[in-house]
């Protein structure tokens, strides 16, 4: 009971502190918000880039298109042979009939395409073996091996879209985001600590009489310190709320667009609410830590208990 009465009084007093110098409170909240926005944007960029890398990696394969006169049995023999290769993870056979069917499915809504397809007498889609490697690095060697194989004559075309370059680019973008983001974060965290430190120091100065009397009449340590901590934590809560409201549309509307731009045709990023909540929780924790550090430092320096 006593504990809750005291806790309530501490919180009330902390919020009063904040209202007493509203401009400094605004400045503290602003700098904290900027820090959190930077943190969140960096995190979101990281999420979308690594998502893109992953979805591209999943998409990489070697498509081997066979000439139309090659029999299915022959292709299946080649498939079995390829499956014996330790570098190869899977070989998927798509017959020309299936390929046509897939194409029709995908272009169901486009009557023009369907019509022109129907006008052809032959099936224009070749039978295909889709090869996936265990490791990204093995693709060139596998493509090479196909080029020099004994059955090269049966193959109409080996389609190996070398996505490694784009994956490397995305990976270096990731590294850049991480290093640049970390540096930026450290700088802004320091600024935030400094600004909040000064705000709390001023509050302590403004309330020095009260603090002196509190000590005199037997206030406990945490009863005296509590309001300053509450004040600083309030800045982080407000900043976290503002930041969350700002990144909400970025996460759910911009990220899918960015994902589509980075890796057109791949799975489009669809915002997962759990990840979003995770981002919010993480920034709240970081904001709390920053606030706690700066107010505790200010108290250590200026509050004589």
């Amino acid at each position: 009971m006593k504990f809750f009465i005291s806790l309530l009084r501490i919180i009330k007093s902390g919020v009063m502190n904040l209202r007493r110098n509203i401009w400094l409170a605004a400045a503290s909240t602003l700098i904290m918000t900027i820090t959190l926005i930077i943190l969140s944007v960096m995190t979101l960029l990281f999420i979308i880039t690594s998502y893109s890398v992953q979805s591209i990696q999943e998409r990489v394969d070697i498509s081997t298109y066979f000439k139309s006169d090659v029999s299915e049995a022959r292709i299946l023999v080649i498939r079995d042979e390829l499956q014996g290769d330790s570098r190869i993870a899977s070989v998927n056979y798509v017959s020309s009939a299936e390929a046509r069917q897939n194409f029709e499915e995908n272009n169901r809504d486009d009557q023009l395409i369907i019509d022109s397809l129907n006008e052809l007498t032959d099936n224009p889609f070749p039978s295909t073996l889709q090869i996936k490697a265990n490791n990204l690095e093995d693709y060139p060697a596998i493509a090479n091996m196909l080029e020099e194989s004994s059955y090269r004559d049966l193959i109409q075309e080996i389609n190996f879209e070398d996505n490694r370059i784009i994956i490397e680019r995305l990976n270096s973008l990731l590294t850049f985001i991480i290093t640049f983001g970390l540096i930026l974060m450290v700088v802004f965290c320091l600024i935030a600590i400094l600004v909040i430190f000064n705000t709390i120091a001023l509050t302590i100065y403004n309330r020095r009489e009260e603090v002196e009397i509190m000590r005199l009449v037997g206030a406990t340590n945490w009863y005296i310190r509590g309001p300053f901590l509450v004040e600083a934590l309030t800045y982080s809560v407000i900043a976290a709320i503002i930041t969350s409201a700002l990144i909400l549309p970025i996460y759910f509307q911009m990220l899918p667009k960015i994902s589509n731009y980075l890796t057109p045709g791949a799975n489009i990023f669809s915002g997962d609410i759990k990840i979003f909540l995770g981002v919010i929780v993480v920034q709240l924790i970081i904001a709390f830590i920053l606030s706690a550090i700066s107010s505790l430092l200010a108290m250590r320096k200026y509050l004589r208990i």
Binding site: E210, I213, V217, G218, A219
Partner: peptide
């Protein structure tokens, strides 16, 4: 209890509130 020459009352609080302040500190209802 402690009393000083320079009195040390909180200027923005009434007599009642100044006395109440001491009781608030120790969690009185």
């Amino acid at each position: 209890g402690v009393v000083f020459q320079d009195i040390k009352l909180l200027p923005k609080r009434t007599a009642f509130e100044n006395v109440a302040f001491a009781m608030e500190v120790s969690g009185h209802t």
